[in-house]
Structure formats: C-alpha cells, structure tokens
Design a protein around this nucleic acid. Structure first.
Lengths: 208, 208
DNA sequence: AGAAATTTTGCAGCAGGCGCAAATTTTCCT
DNA sequence: AGGAAAATTTGCGCCTGCTGCAAAATTTCT
C-alpha cells in the first residue's frame, strides 16, 4: 500500500519526479528559482497547476525533492547503525553510506548549490528541512548516548554532525580536489572528533 | 542620521518594538503565531495594516525582531574579538558577552521557544536567519584562521560555533539548573573543543 | 462491462505582500 | 511663529501563492 503496489504508485512517483526535474531544469534555464512559477512547472510537465500543488506545497519543495528522498534512507541508516556502533561513528558512516557521489552528478550538484545560494527562500526551506531532520534524529541520538532529549550533549552531537555532513558534502561537490567524497566526510568528522578549536593537519599523511 | 537624531528615529524604533511586542503577546494569547494575522497586530498597536508591513515583511519577522537586534551586536563583537583572540574563543566570548540572561526574561523566553517550536514557518524563518548570520561571519572566521572562505575548516568552526550557541542558550533558558548562562555556554564550547565524540564529565568539578 | 476508488482539474476564496499617491505628521529654516 | 520641505502613515488596488471543495476523468477491481 505504500511503495510499489502497481501502476498507481509508480505513476505518482513518476509525476513527482517529473515535476521535480522540470523545476530544476526551469530554474537553471531562467537563472534562478525565483523567476519560475508553479504554473510554468506544471505546464512543462503537462499537468494542471492544481495538480502541482497536490504533490508539492511550493516550488522550493519540488526543487529539494531529491534531498528529501535521501533523508528517509539516512534516518533509517542511522537507526540501524546506532544499535551497533558509537553514535558519532553511526552518524558519520550513515553519511558516507549515502554515496551521494554515485547518486548525483557533480555538475548538476554544483548547479543546484548555486541556485540554492541565490534564493533566500530556498535557503530558508532547506534550513527548515535540516531542523526537521534534527527533530527526527534527536530521539535516536539521545538514547544512544544514554541521555534525555533535553540534555545538551546529544543535541551538540547531532547538531555538529549535521553541520559536518552539510559542509563536507558541499565542499566535496564544489571541489573534489582529488579526494573521494568518503574521504572528505571522514576528514571533517575527524576534525570534530579531535576538537574543533585547532585545525587538523591536512597534508597527505604526515609521517611524524 | 541613523540611530538617535531626534524624535523621529526614536518613534520609529518605538513603533517597531511595539509591533514586535504585540506580536508576541497575541501569539501567546492565541496559542500559536499561525493563528495571528498582520491585521490583528496592527490593530493592537493602533496603526494600519499597511504600516505594519512597512516595518516588517511578515509576522514571523516581527516575532523574531529582538533576535535580529542582538545579531548585529554579535557580529560586531566577533569582529572586534577576532583581532585579538583565537577565533574560537572570540566566538565563545562574543556569545557570552551578549548577556542574554540579563537582557531577556526567562519565562518570556520559554514562551518564545515553545511558540517557535509549534510553528513550522517560524522555524524556517529562524533557520534562515542563522544561515544569513553564517554568511555574514564566514569572511571574518576565514581570515582569522588564515584560510579562504571555501575551505572546510573555517566553515566547520563557524557552523559548530553557531550550533553550540543555539543549543547552549536554549538549554539554559529551558532549565538553568543552578548554572549561570555563561557557564552553560562555556561548558558547551569546552565540549566542542575537547572533541564531540566523547562527552565531557559534567559533575561539579571532579577532583581527579 | 460496470461499480468503486482514486486522481486530476477548475473554481472560488483568503491571506500575504507590494507599489503608488494622497493625507498627515514632523522637522527645518527664516 | 509661520510656512515650506521632508518623511511617515494610510488606503486602495493588484498580483501571487496556496488550500478546500466538488465535479470530471481515469484507473482498478470483480
């Protein structure tokens, strides 16, 4: 009843993806999501404006649709791993395990980032989604650290992990610099693990 | 011409504050900002709806007005301190230096937090403001660490500092637990400094 | 094929937000 | 003071985005 029954669910998912794709395409061609209207997106896909709003509350949500898809997997991965690893490692490995580099095209991702940073509204929506993610994961992290959700420690762990994820992903997609994405993420998490106040040496494996 | 010329600027600031206050008051009495309209706020203060929109683009901005006031000071403080302290310490001390505990009433702050967490729109706007703050401070932090704004290290520093600020403030206002706000902030920053992966001992000064 | 369930669509409605120009208020100058 | 100049407030109209609702179209099931 949820994901793969028959033609029905498949078509819905397809329409949703089509709308999301069209949104990205139009935003690129117009040089900014702000210049795109819901009507245009709907027209591009060949459905009514009303139908667009049945799938997404607004164009920003359509634009960020892929991100949301990934989020669900990420939560599940963290939950699984948290049962058998220290929670900090679980967060890091779940992040690495998303394999964002295999899943998305680098050039397209750079486009996306650029568009996001040029739209205040889009930044807001994305930030909001991070807050949701925080809320959804907090229970897991709190339990894993043996503390209540009110305690600052699990909040700091989760908050800094999410920041680390976002920053390392953005950094790698903006400029891989010969590293793999997994390396970039691992390095960033290592920095947080060693204490943020002093930078970790970066060069290729200092021997001393 | 900016802040204190005469009656003019004073009155404007007063109206702005009155609108902001009224927003909070109405949100409390109606149990959520979503249930409040711009018209009501304007009516409460005795100005036209149009005037409300001259001061704030929307009710969320009015609600978060105090926060924005504080933000300007914070940026200035960070800039000053970064010239003469390690940047991490500068961020921490600038945060402590805001003296949020003296500036705001605890009970009112709890109200505020509750209202924020009950309104998705408000969460989004607040998150967006944090992103703006990030953008405004990144240059300073990057320079202080001797790296470019593209480098992940200054981003991690600033990102985790902002998270630490937000979490420690929220934590203290929700429950001071005998600590001062300055202690709560310092403790949280110390945690990040020592590495987030393992929790710092918390008890009152372990002797060993 | 026909009934039941679901999706799509158009329409109407509401709140938010902005530009504009008239009315009002405040400041400044003589 | 008096009156001109500057700035603020206000009302009005307009457009956009989003949602509820009920009718039309489509798909599924028997």
């Amino acid at each position: 009843m949820a994901d793969q029954s028959g033609l029905r669910e498949r078509k819905k998912a397809a329409t949703k993806a089509a709308l999301s794709d069209a949104t990205l395409r139009l935003a690129v061609s117009k040089g900014g999501l702000d210049a795109v209207t819901a009507d245009e997106i709907a027209a591009e896909v060949g459905v009514s404006t009303r139908t667009f709003h049945n799938y997404f509350p607004n164009k920003e949500a359509a634009f960020l649709h892929d991100f949301n898809e990934v989020t669900g997997e990420f939560i599940a991965a963290v939950r699984d791993r948290a049962a058998q690893q220290p929670v900090w490692d679980a967060l890091r490995d779940a992040c690495v395990g998303m394999r964002m580099d295999e899943r998305f095209d680098i050039a397209q991702m750079q486009c996306r980032e650029e568009l996001i940073h040029s739209s205040p509204e889009l930044i807001k929506v994305q930030a909001g989604q991070f807050m949701e993610l925080f809320a959804e994961l907090l229970g897991i992290v709190a339990e894993a650290t043996g503390r209540s959700t009110d305690h600052p420690y699990p909040r700091l762990v989760l908050g800094s992990a999410l920041v680390t994820m976002k920053i390392s992903n953005e950094d790698w997609f903006a400029n891989p610099r010969g590293r793999t994405l997994a390396e970039a993420i691992t390095q960033a998490f290592a920095q947080m693990e060693a204490g943020i106040a002093r930078p970790l040496p970066e060069g290729p494996e200092p021997d001393a």
